[in-house]
Amino acid sequence: MINQGVEPAGPGPVSPEQAKAQDNRVLGFWIFLSGECAFFASLIGTYLSLNTHTAGATTLVSLIDLPLTGLMTLSLLTSSLTMVFAFLAMNRGELQAMKVWLWVTALLGAVFLDLQIFEFSHYMASGFTMGTSAAASAFFALVGFHGLHVAFGLFWIISLLSYSFKDGITAANTSKVWIAGLYWHFVDVVWVIIFTVVYLLPKVH
């Protein structure tokens, strides 16, 4: 049920042990993601408990540039869409199309990271750093860890692309692409929460 969409597209004999391994990979990844939920829940809890502890120093809300973070949100959400296109291509067995969509996804992820680096350096130049206050520390920890997750996703997608798919799309590599995609969507969902909690609500209030 949970691995709908992973259809062994390619030919080639698959031993029962190998089929089990594909199955395990998808199940194990869902389990890993529930651990990730606890990880981000702890960071978000930390942020919510400290975000008013500004120690009289520069506050985040005075620096937030909603159009910039809106653009970041847009690029990440679009990258989830392109990841879906990569899946669809994979399920149709279209190797080239899948690779192209994966590259587009990676590119959008890189745009997000680039904007985030720009955002962070802007904050730091304005006197809002890890050492400014507890609230600032909590901001950089939460948003920074999310950024690291995006960076790891990028590393992962590019690792997969550098792997030549020499036998075309097979049962073995479908599940590899599938879990990378799952990870990417998860990181995207976490960003939606961060965008709402960290940027949108404080700015709107």
């Binding site: 120690a55 890890m130 050492g131 206050s133 507890a134 520390s137």
Partner: peptide, 13 residues
């Protein structure tokens, strides 16, 4: 890295 999560002087807890 000089953060202040637990540093009371800078609002930590």
């Amino acid at each position: 890295m000089g953060a202040n999560f637990f540093n009371i002087a800078k609002g930590g807890n």
